[in-house]
């Protein structure tokens, strides 16, 4: 016993250091995968409000560019309005005005928000949004901007939420090549904020350079076909029948300011149905 006490006294500084270091490393390795609470992230109310004060000061710096972007998006959406389209088949139109209401239901809703804090030079970059649970943001929802995919909600508090952006090493988003439907997973190598990687693409098909890469819509977070980027380069993975595809992101994450959080209204229905698949079928 005395030896033990002497040991503790001798190495007390080292033990204290090891204890604190252990806490820090535990937080690092568990929270970056699955955040257990909103404290220790920018979703907490204290850091969230400090960051939003900073954002209030700096958000007007690129006001004209943001306005231009919003206007471009508006004009694109205006084009889609039915009143601006000439109906060619009149009979179909007469019948379908009522039928259309019955045959389609809203699946995705978009909640507008603003990025108030972001980094780009880390290995895992998270963005903070000024919207939270009060606006209906939940962990796991997809986040897009007017140009393309931004990331997935990592966790959210009452008024703020943290986005795991496309600039994190384990983003693992379901994506595909648009023209061929070839599926793959989105990864990031931690180096270039304009480029990501698409893994798991089998190399028995040719991939045309500069073909569009879009979301696959499999993970219930995004609708199908939201742009991710374009194929910039394809390389063969050594020893495996796979392409390593480099993607040039559609969105420049350094300048993105206004984003939309995607709420899947049919999420529960789909999950309930999928949970009925028995997962113990072996043969």
């Amino acid at each position: 016993m005395r030896n033990f006490l002497a040991f503790i006294r001798r190495f007390q500084v080292l033990l204290f250091f090891a204890l604190l270091q252990g806490i820090a490393l535990t937080i690092y390795f568990t929270f970056s995968v699955f955040p257990r609470s909103q404290y220790l992230t920018t979703a907490s109310s204290i850091s969230g409000s400090i960051l939003s004060v900073r954002n209030d000061l700096t958000k007007h710096f690129n006001l004209s560019a943001s306005n231009r972007k919003l206007q471009a998006e508006n004009s694109l959406l205006r084009k889609e309005l039915t009143q601006n389209q000439l109906t060619i088949d009149q009979t179909w139109e007469l019948d379908s005005s009522k039928a259309k209401n019955d045959s389609t239901i809203q699946q995705f809703e978009y909640i507008g928000g603003m990025i108030i804090n972001s980094t780009f030079n880390r290995v895992n970059n998270y963005f903070t949004l000024n919207i939270g649970k009060k606006q209906g943001v939940e962990a796991g929802m997809g986040v897009i901007s007017d140009k393309g995919v931004v990331g997935v909600i990592h966790n959210s508090s009452e008024h703020f939420s943290v986005v795991k952006s496309c600039l994190t090493s384990n983003i693992n988003m379901d994506i595909m090549i648009e023209y061929s439907g070839e599926p793959g997973l989105l990864k990031w190598n931690g180096k270039d904020a304009r480029r990501g990687n698409m893994t798991g693409v089998s190399n028995d098909t040719e991939i045309k350079p500069w073909s569009k890469v879009v979301t696959r819509g499999g993970a219930k977070k995004f609708p199908r076909g939201i742009p991710v980027g374009k194929v910039a380069k394809t390389e063969v993975v050594e020893g495996q029948p796979l392409w390593d595809v480099t993607i040039l992101y559609a969105e420049n994450f350094r300048s993105v300011q206004y984003v939309y959080v995607i709420k899947n209204l049919l999420l529960n229905e789909q999950q309930e149905l999928e949970s009925q698949i028995p997962n113990d079928i072996e043969n």
């Binding site: 937080i27 929270f31 955040p35 404290y39 220790l40 992230t41 880390r122």
Partner: peptide
């Protein structure tokens, strides 16, 4: 860490 989302780094 709490204000830059680095989780203990």
């Amino acid at each position: 860490d709490a204000m830059s989302n680095t989780y203990g780094l």
